[in-house]
Structures are given as structure tokens and as C-alpha cells.
Design a protein around this nucleic acid. Structure first.
Length: 679
DNA sequence: CTTAGGG
DNA sequence: CCCTAAG
């Protein structure tokens, strides 16, 4: 724990009070954890995004020659260096960026600009917007460079500090900073992928991984905010801001992994898109890791210290975590929204002017079910978030004018990133599949808040005889083929052939474990109405921050629904009598004995039940008869309850008093005096 | 697993 | 009744 914490702090840069031996509750509810987490997440996100971006870049060939670097920043480094050997600045930048796992996009652009001696006005603009908030033209580069350097430097030092655990990571990073980014990156990627896809993410997503990811983000961040880079060290705000710019994600799994990502688009598609993708991807990874490692958290408290310990086995835990995450994210988002202007992540700026639909997608694990949250933003953008057990939840903001097709693509991208395979996204509105991709969201009515809840979407893995996946919230569990089919089949795209079984999404049994039990109960609903609330993929996400908070709640609610509650079994008078009698003799505080004595054969009555019943009995006896409900309990019994309660309460109090200051003699006296009375 | 309490 | 923190 301690070591972990240290590490975390190092990353965050600020000290979070450690609550070492504090009671669980304290740890859990401590406000600090949250902050720490935020910072971490952000960092991770950033890093992840970078890594992802790099990957993406390498994959995407859309970029122009000028920005060749974008495509394969990591791998092309050698080339770049040589090419720009002459140009000191560019080169350095290049190195720096790589070292920091920065996004190739920006980096590249910068480099190219430099090489051309003067960055085009617009280029500059972009640059400043995206990564730096510098207004000057000529010295901008220098500034950047210098800052970056210093940043890196610091960074290294830091590394040293928390290197105990991160040895590997640090090495990697250093290497990368030296220009061996490639390796580092690869490794990182590896780690990410493994985490991402590995069944036992927990193992793979060790702290180390986290760390790795972490580091990069920070650097990036520094880049973004040249002026107040690293040092900010993750003050909470910094974290948030970063997140805001980039994306927010949380990842949720069956086990409670959820990823949420919100991103605002910036302008040039070419410029950003790779990055976006990268972000997405990374996030997915990160989220998954994060998520996996995330301990059980409740009430929005996440304790970093627990990282690395997979808690997701337990449903409860998971749920708690989920909730927590949701809340956290929301909060973060709020903050971000506020700060967004200040901090800009390379590619994403809150004031996105993008004309292209924004897609934010993240996926941590493939999931058959996904939920899409849609919210109409003030800026006439519709925000979508995909949430699922396996696929992290994410927020997507797209212009109202975005077409259904673009929406589908957006989601698809996310899915692809997650699954690595092809997938189709089906959009259902009012239970009907929206086939016309050319229509805009507005035209379709998806952008209207009132109708948002009528929106659903389904993921339709295509490449393999992809089965359609019902998008639904985790609880709804539309993942199973049985569930999905009935629902989806009707709306399937002709081009999609599905077999749920073969779906890549379904290939993660481990993930499904948890959900499976729950699924059972939900099956009926799901099957019955196609895309009803439970199966509804799209859920409106209120634009307002407050509204956002609702999401978690609803989830929570849904969750609880799945946990079947024991059937209520009111205590009969006979039982009450037995209970009262037993308590009279044994006193309160010995419920196990009471159970054994009076309810030995009543399997459905646990000692907790008895305790609770006694509690209610006392209450009942306390209130006026008119206020009592249910089967009336003889007043005589209630009187006894009160008497016993009073007696034992007193007894207990005395016991305490004695223990604390009483003398042995006194104790004996009191004890002997009292007991007899009762028996 | 038990207790004790809050929900 | 449920859920948890603590012991």
C-alpha cells in the first residue's frame, strides 16, 4: 500500500494524505482518494491516449506527407532525426515528444513547420490551441522546446523517485526520451493491449503498467500547458483540466469496468483524428487497466492504494466501484468543463469547432452490451456516451448536424478499437432501426432530449459472423445471444450477419461471469420488449452537470434490481415471543446465541434478522400503537421488549463504564446484581 | 463469522 | 431486509 501510494503521489505530484491505518470507512470515504485518483486517471488517460495515438497514427495513412511523422512517429523516428539533423530545434522537439510519448500529430506538425522555417499562420494557431497556449509566433517554438525540455528533465528526476516500483517503466521512458521511444512505446502498447484483451487483466495491468501510462500523460500535459506544465503536478485541477481537454473516461466492466470518455472535437479532422483515435484507444486500455485494478470503491471514493488488487470478483464491490467511477467522472467532467478553456490537450479543445462529428469511443473490453448515453448539449451538439459492462462508457459529442451514419461510425470506431475487429453500429430510435445514415441526428430526432431515451444502439460485430449486440446497460445484460437475438434480429442490417456466439465480444467469459448471474433475471425483460429501458442503448444524458449525476444513480438502481432481495417474511407473534424471551435471557449483543437458542431451526432467520427484528420491535414498542403497522404485536410482548431493551442497554452501559474506569470489585457487584434480575 | 448500525 | 465497517 505504502509503496503504491508513494508512487501515485509521485505521479500526481501532490501529496495526498495517506490514510494508512484508518478504518475502512475512513479510507473509503476520505476525500483524498478521489483526488488522487483523478490525477492518476488523467495521467493515465493522457498517456494512454498518446500511446493509442501513436498506434493509430501508424495505422492511419490519411495524413499528408508533410505530416508524415504522424503516421509513424514512433517507428519513423530514426528517419526523422536524420532528416532534421540540421534543424536543431525540430529535432529536439521530435525527441522530446517522443520521449514523452507525445502525440505524433502535434509533434510532427511542429517539426514540419520548423523545417519550413515558418509555420503557417493557421498551423500556428492549431498548435497553440491544441498544445500550447502561446500566442507569439516566432519564439513560440523556442519556448515550447525549452519548456518541454525542462519538463522532461523534471520528469526524469521524478521517475527516479518513484522508481522503486517502476523500474522498468522508468527505463522505458528514459529510453524513449532518448529517442528510443519506439521500444518504450511498443512496450507500452503491449502492456496496454494485454491489459485490454487479456482475460486476467488484473495481472497484466499491474501497477507497473499504470505507471508507465502515467508518466507519459504527464509529459503530454506539460506540453499542452507549456507555461504551467509538470509542476502543477497534478494538482487536482490540473488533472481535471487535462481530462477535460482530452477525454474523460471511466471504464466499467461487468465487473464494473466502465469507461467513459467525453471529447470535444477540435478542428481539423486530419490533424486530430489520429489523436482522437489514439486517445480513445489508450483510454480503453487505460480504462480497462484502471478499471481492473481499481479496488472496490463506494460512494465515489476510489482509493488508489488499492490499485493492482482486482476486486471485481465481487459483485458488490464492482458495483460500488462502478458507482464511484461514475460519480467521479461526472465530477471531473464538471470541473473540466469549467477549466476546459484553460487547459487544452493537444487535439481536443473544449471549444471545438469541428465540423466533423466527434467520436469518442473507448472500450476496455469487448462487450456484447453497450449503452449509449445521449445528451443534447447547449452547443447544439448531442453527446453520446456508450456504456457497457465490457465496453467502457464514453461520451461522445457530435453536432446535431452529424448524421446517423457518422454516429454509427463513431461508435463503431470505439468498438473496433476495443474489439480490434469490424463492427457495425445500429441505431435504434423508438425501437426502430434507423437505417438512413444520411439523416442528421436532428432530423432523426435524436438530438431532442425528449427523444433521447428512445434511442438505442446495438453493436453488430460484422467481420466474423458477428452477432448483433444489444446495447444495454450492464444490468440489462443483453449480451447473451438469447437476449440479443430476439431483440436485434429484426433490426439487423442486411449486411450484417451475426452469430453472437462467434462474436469477438463474447469471447470473454471471464468478463461475463458476473453479469451472467444477473442476466438471468433481466432476460425476461429484455426479451419481452425490444429495447426497453433496460436494453436501451441510448440514454439521454442531461447536459447539465447535475443531470449528469443522474446517470450513476440510475445505474445503481438498475443494479439493485438485479440483486434479488430475500422475500419478506414478517415475524409472527410466536416468533416475536421467542425472540423476546431469548433476548431477555441473553441480552442484546448475542444474536448468534439468540438465533441458536430460539431460531435454531428457522433457516430463514439469521441472527442479523433477529437483531433487526429486535431493533424494529424496540421501535415499535416506542411508538404509539396507532403508528404501528403490520401484524399487531401484543402489547405485553412490547412491554417486555422495552423492559429487556432498557435493562440490557443499561447493563451494557455499565459494562462499558466498568471497563473504562470501574474497579474490579465494582464490576462484580454490578454484574451479579443485575443478572439475577433478568433471569 | 459476528456485531452494530445505517440505509 | 440489505449493506458494511469493524472486530
Amino acid at each position: 500500500m505504502v509503496s503504491k501510494k508513494r508512487v501515485d503521489y509521485g505521479f500526481n505530484g501532490f501529496r495526498v494524505p495517506i490514510i494508512p491505518k484508518a478504518p475502512r470507512s475512513a479510507r473509503r470515504r476520505g476525500p483524498f482518494n478521489k483526488a488522487a485518483e483523478d490525477g492518476r486517471v488523467c495521467a493515465i488517460e493522457l498517456l494512454a491516449s498518446l500511446a493509442g495515438q501513436l498506434l493509430q497514427e501508424s495505422e492511419s495513412s490519411a495524413s499528408s506527407n508533410a505530416s508524415e511523422g504522424n503516421n509513424q512517429p514512433a517507428f519513423s523516428q530514426g528517419v526523422i532525426e536524420q532528416d532534421r539533423q540540421n534543424e536543431v530545434k525540430p529535432l529536439k522537439k521530435e525527441e522530446i515528444h517522443q520521449g514523452s510519448c507525445a502525440e505524433s500529430t502535434i509533434k510532427t506538425e511542429v517539426g514540419s513547420q520548423n523545417s519550413s522555417q515558418k509555420p503557417p499562420p493557421h498551423s500556428k494557431t492549431d498548435f497553440s490551441k491544441g498544445h500550447v497556449s502561446v500566442n507569439n509566433g516566432s519564439d513560440i517554438w523556442e519556448k515550447v522546446e525549452g519548456d518541454v525540455k525542462s519538463e522532461i528533465f523534471k520528469w526524469d528526476n521524478k521517475f527516479g523517485n518513484y522508481s522503486n516500483r517502476l523500474v522498468k517503466a522508468s527505463e522505458k521512458f528514459r529510453e524513449s526520451s532518448d529517442g528510443k521511444m519506439k521500444n518504450g512505446f511498443k512496450q507500452e502498447q503491449k502492456a496496454g493491449s494485454s491489459c485490454f484483451r487479456g482475460s486476467n487483466l488484473a495481472d497484466k495491468c499491474s501497477l507497473k503498467d499504470h505507471l508507465e501510462l502515467y508518466v507519459s500523460p504527464t509529459l503530454i500535459n506539460s506540453k499542452s500547458n507549456i507555461k504551467s506544465p509538470f509542476h502543477r503536478k497534478s494538482s487536482p485541477s490540473a488533472s481535471f483540466s487535462r481530462r477535460g481537454n482530452v477525454v474523460k473516461l471511466g471504464s466499467r466492466d461487468d465487473d464494473e469496468n466502465f469507461l467513459r470518455c467525453k471529447r470535444v472535437c477540435t478542428k481539423s479532422k486530419a490533424f486530430r483524428s489520429p489523436r482522437r483515435i489514439a486517445h480513445r484507444r489508450i483510454r480503453n486500455l487505460m480504462s480497462s487497466k484502471y478499471w481492473k485494478t481499481a479496488p472496490k470503491l463506494k460512494d465515489c471514493e476510489l482509493s488508489r492504494s488499492d490499485l493492482g488488487v482486482p476486486h471485481y470478483h465481487k459483485r458488490k464491490t464492482c458495483y460500488g466501484f462502478e458507482r464511484f467511477q461514475n460519480n467521479t467522472f461526472i465530477k471531473k467532467r464538471k470541473i473540466v468543463d469549467r477549466v476546459s478553456g484553460v487547459t487544452s490537450d493537444g487535439g481536443f479543445s473544449s471549444e471545438s469547432v469541428s465540423n466533423s462529428p466527434q467520436k469518442g469511443t473507448d472500450g476496455d473490453k469487448p462487450s456484447s452490451s453497450a449503452k449509449l448515453h445521449v445528451a443534447k448539449a447547449k452547443d447544439s451538439h448531442v453527446k453520446f456516451s456508450i456504456k457497457s459492462i465490457r465496453i467502457p462508457e464514453l461520451y461522445i459529442e457530435v453536432p446535431e448536424t452529424a448524421t446517423v451514419g457518422s454516429l454509427k461510425r463513431t461508435i463503431m470506431e470505439a468498438v473496433m478499437a476495443i474489439l480490434g475487429g469490424g463492427a457495425h453500429v445500429g441505431v435504434l430510435h423508438h425501437g426502430k432501426k434507423v437505417r438512413d445514415d444520411s439523416r442528421t441526428l436532428v432530423q432523426t430526432g435524436i438530438s431532442c432530449n425528449e427523444n433521447l431515451d428512445t434511442l438505442s444502439f446495438m453493436l453488430e460485430p460484422v467481420s466474423l459472423q458477428a452477432p448483433t449486440i444489444c446495447a444495454g446497460d450492464p444490468s440489462s445484460q443483453c449480451e447473451t445471444s438469447q437476449l440479443t437475438r430476439p431483440i436485434e434480429t429484426p433490426a439487423l442490417d442486411s449486411d450484417i450477419t451475426d452469430t453472437l456466439h462467434d462474436s469477438p465480444l463474447l469471447t470473454y467469459p471471464s468478463n461475463l461471469i458476473e453479469s451472467n448471474h444477473e442476466t438471468t433475471s433481466s432476460l425476461a425483460d429484455t426479451t419481452v420488449d425490444k429495447i426497453t429501458p433496460d436494453c436501451r442503448a441510448l440514454v439521454p444524458v442531461p447536459a447539465s452537470a447535475e443531470a449528469l449525476a443522474v446517470v450513476p444513480v440510475s445505474q445503481k438502481t438498475k443494479r439493485s434490481e438485479f440483486v434479488q432481495r430475500r422475500t419478506r417474511r414478517p415475524f409472527s407473534v410466536t416468533e416475536v415471543e421467542a425472540l423476546v424471551h431469548a433476548v431477555e435471557e441473553l441480552g442484546t449483543g448475542r444474536w448468534r446465541d439468540v438465533k441458536l437458542r430460539a431460531f435454531e431451526n428457522a433457516d430463514h432467520r439469521t441472527y442479523v434478522d433477529l437483531k433487526d427484528k429486535w431493533k424494529t420491535l424496540v421501535h415499535t414498542a416506542t411508538i404509539s400503537p396507532q403508528q404501528r403497522r403490520g401484524e399487531p404485536v401484543p402489547q405485553e410482548l412490547l412491554d417486555r421488549v422495552l423492559a429487556a431493551h432498557a435493562f440490557w442497554s443499561q447493563h451494557q452501559a455499565k459494562q462499558h463504564g466498568k471497563h473504562q474506569a470501574g474497579s474490579g470489585t465494582l464490576k462484580i457487584t454490578e454484574a451479579s446484581a443485575e443478572r439475577p434480575c433478568v433471569c
